[in-house]
């Protein structure tokens, strides 16, 4: 058996739309782009409307709150080590009605208890972003989404 340790380092470009989004987080703002033709709102923002295949038309600011679409509690780390305290995360629907198949949504940690994930009471609950004191223009500027 031959053992090898790869070392690959990257500098990922956030590009124009995501950079504006990340810089917005620094100011406690959740920014999205909107397509005037189909009215679709993109959060995280996109330069192009994927439905209409044309540039999006402008920026909109969304409230830093939404509805929990789904939630999970992870007892394993990314290397599959066992965690004592679960990491709770999920997707948050920022805007739209219950019946929408697509909507502006974010993936993030959710500040709640394991019990509320288990009994599903957190799904469908209203949550609000908890912002970090120190913000640098990263998805981590939001600590989590917490129930209101």
């Amino acid at each position: 058996m031959i053992r090898y340790v790869p070392k690959a380092k990257y500098s990922y470009s956030a590009g124009q739309a995501q950079s504006v989004f990340l810089n917005g987080l620094k100011e406690k703002k959740i920014l999205g782009t909107v397509c005037n033709k189909c009215k679709k709102v993109y959060v995280p923002p996109k330069m192009y409307c994927e439905e209409c295949f044309k540039p999006t038309d402008g920026w909109v600011e969304l409230k830093d709150e939404g509805i929990v679409h789904t939630a999970i509690a992870s007892f394993v780390s990314w290397t599959r080590d066992r965690l004592e305290e679960p990491i709770i995360s999920g997707t948050i629907k920022l805007y739209g009605s219950e019946r929408d198949y697509v909507f502006p949504g974010m993936f993030h940690r959710i500040c709640t208890t394991y019990d509320k994930v288990r009994d599903m009471s957190i799904i469908g609950a209203k949550v609000k972003a908890v912002w970090n004191e120190k913000r640098v223009g990263s998805i981590e500027d939001i600590q989590c989404f917490k129930e209101v």
Binding site: Q18, I72, I87, S89, F107
Partner: peptide, 12 residues
Amino acid sequence: ILETPIGPNLLW
């Protein structure tokens, strides 16, 4: 940029 920092794995 937006997802990996939260620490997801495939099971998530």
